[in-house]
């Protein structure tokens, strides 16, 4: 098993990905309605405050899941959790820039055996450089058994 402290020292808080996202009006509406949103500001494009639902940044995926030289653990990565801190409304048609770094790395034993948790944080900025949201993704990788 890789030494977690070494990984933390080498990779935490260093941007490893930058990607731009176009925010599409129709997709915002479909996303919101599928989640059960009924507030017009998320479902009606004519609403004066029309915007993406606050959890929308969770769906934006970085170009790379992990830093280029990050070790592979062999197992399938599963979503262990998501956290979003929306700071400004996300409007349709805007181009967002997402910068991603590893925010935390740790291990634990779960119902499915030994697991490695990787928390990546995407910081989203609008074209003016304003910080729009943070989206954290916890990915758990079940260590491949040697048995």
């Amino acid at each position: 098993m890789e030494d977690v402290e070494t990984l933390r020292e080498k990779y935490l808080n260093l941007d490893y990905d930058e990607k731009t996202f176009e925010v599409d009006q129709d997709k915002i509406i479909a996303y919101a309605k599928a989640c059960g949103e009924i507030a017009p500001r998320f479902t009606d494009p004519t609403h004066a405050d029309f915007q993406a639902p606050p959890t929308f940044p969770s769906s934006l995926m970085a170009g790379r899941h992990l830093p280029e030289d990050f070790p592979r653990f062999g197992g399938i990565g599963m979503d262990a959790g998501k956290a979003v801190e929306p700071m400004l409304p996300i409007r349709p048609g805007v181009q967002l820039k997402g910068r991603t770094h590893l925010h935390d790395i740790y291990t634990k034993t779960g119902r499915s055996g030994r697991m490695i948790f990787l928390v990546s944080r995407m910081e989203l900025y609008d074209p003016e450089g304003k910080h729009v949201a943070n989206a954290d993704t916890s990915t758990v990788i079940r260590e491949r058994s040697s048995e």
């Binding site: 996303y31 919101a32 599928a34 989640c35 059960g36 949103e37 009924i38 639902p53 606050p54 959890t55 969770s58 769906s59 979503d79 959790g81 998501k82 979003v84």
Partner: peptide, 12 residues
Amino acid sequence: PGIMSQGFLAAM
């Protein structure tokens, strides 16, 4: 998807 569960919770 987990993000959809999160979306349900926000909608609530």
